[in-house]
Simulated scan of single mutants.
Amino acid sequence: MGHRYARLGWALGLLFAALFYCRAVQADEFLIEGLEARAVEGIYLMDASIDYRFTDEALEALESGVPLTLEVHIQLRREGAWIWESDLVDARLRFQILYQALHGLYQVTDLLSGTKQHYATRKAALTALGRIRDVQLTQVERLEKGEQYRLSLRSRLDIEALPLPLRPMAYLSPAWNLSSEWSVWRLQP
């Protein structure tokens, strides 16, 4: 009887290891290739470059007319801040990419401003989607001289924004769990 439980435990351990490996392989499909902040006329502006490497399942859905929504999470905190200290910036930018089969164009929309741009190729649309420029973070005067601050950014596919019939499969499949690791830029006024 104990031997049977040992086999079951070994099999479950192997299953969890395989699931963890599959999840680890899929988890870093988005790569933040550049992040920086600079002061311009008394305001800190942020630029970022994200390489969106979608899985075949996500690209197939996109080509079938399913809009994919991406959320870029931005945080600015004092380096070494206590957990109860407020973030100077905690913002989420939202973008959407949609393939319009009738026109043969890819539409990239900034969901906060409503700005739409169209591209003839998927590659051009994904490049534009990953190019984030001149995002206003905070006024320079809000940062204390001599302190160091940590600007963090990550991006993820918003599964909640998928059409309802697609969500259950997206929750269960690692192919839809697309996100980047946190990228960090340190700044000191």
Rank of each mutant, 00 (worst) to 15 (best):
I97Q: 12
V72D: 06
G80T: 14
W84N: 04
G104L: 04
V40P: 13
Q96R: 03
A39D: 15
R78L: 04
A61K: 02
Y44M: 01
L102M: 12
G104I: 08
G65F: 04
L93M: 07
A58L: 00
A91P: 03
L45A: 06
W84K: 09
E36P: 11
A48H: 13
A37D: 11
A61C: 05
I43F: 06
G34T: 03
L98F: 15
A39Y: 05
Q26L: 00
V25T: 11
D90I: 02
G80M: 13
R53E: 09
L70Q: 12
L62K: 10
D47M: 04
L31E: 15
E60A: 13
I97F: 14
E29R: 13
G34L: 02
E33C: 04
A48P: 09
I50R: 12
E29Y: 10
E36Y: 12
D47A: 01
A58T: 01
Q26E: 10
E60F: 00
L68V: 02
E60V: 03
Y99A: 08
V40W: 12
E33K: 03
V40F: 10
D51Q: 13
A24S: 12
L45H: 09
E36G: 08
D28G: 05
V40S: 15
E71Y: 12
F54G: 01
T55F: 01
V40I: 15
P67S: 07
A81C: 11
E71Q: 15
P67D: 03
E41T: 14
D56H: 06
A101M: 01
A27F: 03
V72N: 09
I83L: 15
Q96A: 03
D47Q: 00
M46K: 04
L35D: 09
L93F: 03
Q26P: 06
Y52Q: 10
L31W: 07
T55C: 05
F30S: 02
Y99G: 05
H73P: 04
L68E: 06
